[in-house]
């Protein structure tokens, strides 16, 4: 299980990475592992504006369909359209080719409030039982 440590995490298992003035968002390795083989990813429209905690899409696997939630508020600037044809990228490479959306954050301080890799790791250990 990888807990990449240059990204931030939230409790609903999304990661967020600052990339200049944008924030890239995906689901964690832990999340893709519990979901199992991802078969479909539903993403928002570019230009949508959403608040932190809003659902922005759905990741569907053979086991379950899970909503994914905004780690920070802002406008959707880009979506990973490649996932339409290659949803398995979420499993194979959750932190790279499996990214979901890029957000232009309206309140950059929201990012620093998220969990560090270590905090998130401890949090997931608490979920095991």
């Amino acid at each position: 299980m990888t807990f990449r440590d240059d990204v931030k995490y939230q409790e609903s298992h999304e990661w967020a990475l600052k990339d200049d003035d944008l924030v890239i968002v995906g689901v964690s390795d832990y999340a893709q592992d519990s979901l199992g083989d991802v078969v479909y990813v539903e993403l928002p429209d570019v230009g949508d504006v959403k608040k932190k905690g809003d659902s922005f899409g759905v990741v569907e696997s053979v086991k379950a369909a899970s909503d994914v939630y905004m780690p920070v508020s802002g406008e959707i600037i880009e979506i990973n359209a490649d996932l339409d044809d290659n949803p398995s990228n979420v499993n194979d490479s959750p932190f790279d080719s499996g990214w979901l959306i890029k957000i232009k954050p309206s309140d950059p301080s929201e990012l620093s409030a998220l969990m560090s890799a270590q905090e998130y790791k401890t949090y997931t250990e608490g979920l095991e039982d």
Binding site: Y40, V62, S88
Partner: peptide, 8 residues
Amino acid sequence: LDEVSAVR
């Protein structure tokens, strides 16, 4: 059965 290809 290959459930993943069945759904994809």
